[in-house]
């Protein structure tokens, strides 16, 4: 294995052109790709395009974003939604959990009107879900993520 390329935030990695694309842990500015993390450079070949990525070596810092598949545990049930705590994002176990909310409409893709939260989940269930959006509506206990159950 070749010696890993170490980089620090703000380090210019390469030029941004048709065959080089900025991936995770990098950003583009004025035609160049810069690193935004301290870690090792990883170049992934994707259909002829080289995606430049930087992976941090220590514990990763992750926040849930739209479309992420998360593992969550159900905590509270109500008629219209259930609340849960997000424990993993993808394959990464989080050191700090995030709150999430699963609405009745999002439980099932079909037959949305007849879904009953009580019959679908029980407190303590571990579910796999996809983050639908960061809710913009206010919620009695602050902001929560809306997630979609995923089977």
């Amino acid at each position: 294995m070749t010696k890993p390329l170490i980089c620090v935030p703000g380090q210019r990695l390469c030029i941004l052109d048709k065959i080089h694309e900025s991936g995770q842990g990098t950003y583009e500015r004025q035609g160049y790709i810069y690193s935004s993390l301290a870690g090792i450079v990883d170049v992934v070949d994707k259909e002829g395009v080289k995606v430049v990525e930087v992976r941090s070596t220590g514990e990763q810092t992750l926040v849930p974003t739209q479309g992420d598949i998360v593992t969550a545990q159900v905590t509270i049930l109500t008629q219209d939604f259930c609340k849960c705590v997000i424990k993993c994002i993808g394959n990464t176990v989080l050191s700090r959990t995030y709150r999430g909310m699963l609405r009745r409409e999002d439980v099932c893709a079909t037959d949305k009107d007849h879904v009953q939260i009580y019959k679908s989940y029980r407190p303590g269930d571990v579910i796999l879900a996809r983050v639908v959006s960061f809710s913009e509506f206010s919620f009695s206990k602050g902001n929560a993520l809306t997630i979609n159950s995923y089977q």
Binding site: P9, G25, Y34, S36, A38
Partner: peptide, 11 residues
């Protein structure tokens, strides 16, 4: 911040 893995534009 860099050690914590928080994305940053620069040092």
């Amino acid at each position: 911040l860099a050690q914590a893995g928080i994305p940053m534009y620069d040092t």
